[in-house]
Design a protein around this nucleic acid. Structure first.
Length: 445
DNA sequence: TTTTGAGTTGTTCGA
DNA sequence: GTCGAACAACTCAAA
């Protein structure tokens, strides 16, 4: 009997338990459904990356990837019927949209089972709980329990799979052309990046990961996002000395767990007081602030460098993500949701769980005891984590003439504004006080 | 059961 | 310049 293996965010053949499950019963129909909802949501950068990844997967299947455009609840049953499949195999998707979609597809499949094997996580969301069975809301206890829970060994190599296309394949979708270069997509590229990072970056990761001027991070985020490599594969290769990197992988799992238990937290603050009490900037001023932030024209060099990196590369260093997020929420007083939407539209690694809860953490309405007084100083952060100013000069050419660390304070440089760089759109010290006062009002309720 | 201490990523102020 | 304290309120786990 044939079966259908429906790829979604697991675009790989290695360490793929759902593939093993599918291959057990005979020929496998490798299906990818171009879901118009997710496609529209992705934005041009992720659309391009997805197509590149699908092409890579297709090549590794000997051009047998079955691409069909349409709503999954319509497409998947149709393909299963055409293949006379005994089952449709998937890796579980724990995102709110994925859960709802898979429920609809399961219903539409009627008697053909939708079999979930594995997930994009080492430990599936919902598995790690407190002693009373409820979900964690603080990271460190979660991390301890997650380690304690442990995970399976990577899945075996699938060997020779008989790929089969029972119907004609539709073409790859055509995203708008980009004038930016994305990293190489696909499973082989993911493993190559991982091996390079293991050999050259992992030992210094704890020290250098916060330096956006240095390539100190793993650059694996888009590979994890699209499942071109599984986190279990990374964890298996880690040693005792790699605790900091292990914890970063666990953050991804923690936020997936938090979102699983709070499906509305993509748009609603975990702390419900937050959405109703904060006094946000409104009207024309809000639109102008948002545009200045999005285009990297706030007059704060480190913030603007980050926002331009996002625009130019579809990616931003994590340290800078926190700084620009803090700036949007606590200096410009705009809701975290506006920033999260922009990130999801622009990021090649955009993941709804990590993105929503990264933003909520920064905004101070999410998990963990994010102290209300934690307002990042955009200048101080730049001087601390981009000490030579190289990061700012790389992305903000109007400041390229200012040497060293002085680039973080163009107002103190004699020709600082000679090349059209804008002056600061807000007074950070003042806005910090406003944010603290707002937050104190929330906590009083 | 109650208490206690710690909690990703910070900043400012005053000694 | 460096350094420690202070900046709430709540979650969680261990004592």
């Amino acid at each position: 009997m044939a079966s259908v293996l429906w790829f979604r965010r697991d675009l790989r053949l290695r360490d793929n338990p759902a593939l093993l499950a599918a291959a057990e019963s005979g020929p496998v129909v490798p299906l990818f459904v171009v879901d118009p909802v997710l496609w529209e949501r992705a934005g041009a950068v992720r659309q391009n990356y997805l197509v590149a990844s699908l092409r890579s997967l297709g090549a590794s299947l000997g051009r047998n990837l079955l691409l069909i455009h349409g709503r999954p609840e319509e497409v998947v049953p149709r393909i299963a019927k055409a293949a006379k499949a005994d089952a449709v195999h998937i890796a579980a998707d724990y995102s709110p949209y994925g859960q709802a979609r898979d429920a609809r597809v399961g219903t539409a499949l009627k008697k053909t089972p939708l079999v979930r094997t594995g997930s994009p996580y080492a430990v599936a969301p919902g598995r790690v709980t407190k002693a009373d069975g409820t979900a964690y809301r603080v990271y460190t206890p979660f991390f301890k329990a997650w380690l304690q829970h442990g995970w399976r060994a990577p899945a075996d190599d699938p060997g020779d799979v008989e790929w089969w296309m029972p119907v004609g394949c539709q073409g790859y979708p055509s995203p708008p052309e980009l004038d930016i270069a994305l990293p190489p997509a696909g499973e082989d590229a993911a493993w190559e990046r991982w091996e390079t990072f293991r050999a050259t970056g992992l030992a210094d990761y704890a020290e250098l990961r916060n330096r956006p001027d240095i390539a100190g991070t793993s650059s694996l985020s888009q590979y994890l996002r699209f499942g071109e490599i599984h986190p279990r594969s990374l964890l298996t290769d880690l040693g005792d000395a790699d605790e900091v990197f292990r914890k970063e992988i666990c953050w991804r799992e923690f936020y997936a767990d938090v979102l699983f238990h709070n499906p509305s937290s993509t748009t609603h603050s975990l702390d419900p007081r937050y959405d109703t009490i904060m006094r946000w900037t409104k009207g024309k001023q809000a639109r102008e602030f948002l545009e200045a932030w999005q285009t990297g024209m706030t007059g704060f060099p480190f913030v603007d460098a980050g926002m331009r990196q996002l625009r130019d590369e579809g990616w931003m260093h994590n340290r800078v993500r926190m700084v620009v997020a803090s700036f949007l929420v606590k200096d410009l007083h705009l809701p975290w949701q506006r920033g999260a939407e922009h990130f999801m539209h622009m990021l090649r690694d955009g993941d709804v769980a990590s993105n929503s809860h990264g933003w909520q953490w920064t905004a101070g309405c999410g998990t963990d005891a994010s102290p209300f007084y934690r307002v990042f100083n955009p200048i101080g952060q730049g001087e601390k984590f981009d000490p030579d100013g190289d990061y700012v000069r790389r992305y903000v050419p109007e400041l390229a003439h200012i040497p060293g660390s002085a680039v973080h304070q163009p107002w103190n440089w004699i020709d600082g504004y000679a090349h059209g760089y804008p002056e600061p759109i807000v007074d950070h010290a003042h806005e910090r006080q406003v944010a603290l006062a707002d937050f104190a009002a929330i906590k009083g309720r």
